[in-house]
Amino acid sequence: MPRFTALPTDIVEAYRAGAPDAFGNPPERQISDGAGNPCRHCLRHVPKGAGMLVLAYKPFAGTHPYAEVGPIFLCADTCERGGGTALPEVMGTAPDYLIKGYGADDRIVYGTGSVTATPALHQRIAAIFADPKVAYIHARSARNNCYQARIDRD
């Protein structure tokens, strides 16, 4: 079974303390309207009326042509890190997702990317992991290209 992996707590705590985002800006503080604000740490939606952070996130250590940057949301207050083999709450609300495999070199493994209907995610993830060149998968919003979660082999 694949494992959905949330952002590490130490990185999230740094953002909560004002660490700069991928573009060197402090995270913006906003109030959630209760819809479409998935926290990338607890992998749940930020509750309506709760504080949240909005920032540019790059899920790669270095800079290279495949190191995509995009907006993400985080709970402004402490939340428990999510993840596991079950589809996270935040990924059960959209009709589909863009998923693509990456090699150990953090480059896209061509031929693995697809917009996949949510009910078919586990099947498509298994097909991507059948390629031995794939080290991990990223799930992104099919509409806004926002990073959702990393998917690892369990």
Rank of each mutant, 00 (worst) to 15 (best):
V115M: 10
I151H: 02
G103P: 01
Y110M: 11
R140K: 12
G24V: 09
R29A: 08
H45S: 04
P88F: 04
F4L: 08
I31K: 12
V109K: 02
A76E: 10
T112P: 00
L7H: 00
F60C: 03
A94H: 08
H122Q: 13
A6S: 10
V134T: 02
A22D: 04
V90L: 10
I128T: 03
N37K: 06
K58H: 03
R150M: 08
G84V: 06
A142G: 05
T116L: 11
D152W: 07
G24L: 11
I31N: 08
G82V: 07
G34M: 12
T9D: 14
G103E: 04
S114A: 15
R40L: 03
R150K: 13
R29P: 01
H45E: 13
E89W: 06
R150Y: 04
A67I: 07
N25D: 10
G83T: 10
E80K: 15
G70A: 05
Y15M: 11
D33R: 14
A56Q: 12
E28Y: 14
A22N: 04
D105Y: 11
Y97H: 10
G18R: 13
H64E: 05
I11H: 05
A22S: 09
P95K: 14
T118H: 07
P27C: 13
H41N: 14
A117N: 06
F73S: 01
G70T: 06
G51N: 06
C42H: 05
H64K: 07
H138L: 07
M1W: 12
V115L: 10
G62W: 11
V69Q: 05
D77K: 07
G36A: 10
V54P: 01
V12C: 08
V109H: 03
H45T: 05
N25P: 01
R153S: 09
I137S: 02
P65Q: 08
A76G: 04
P47D: 09
F4C: 01
V115E: 11
A142E: 06
A126D: 15
D131T: 06
P88K: 01
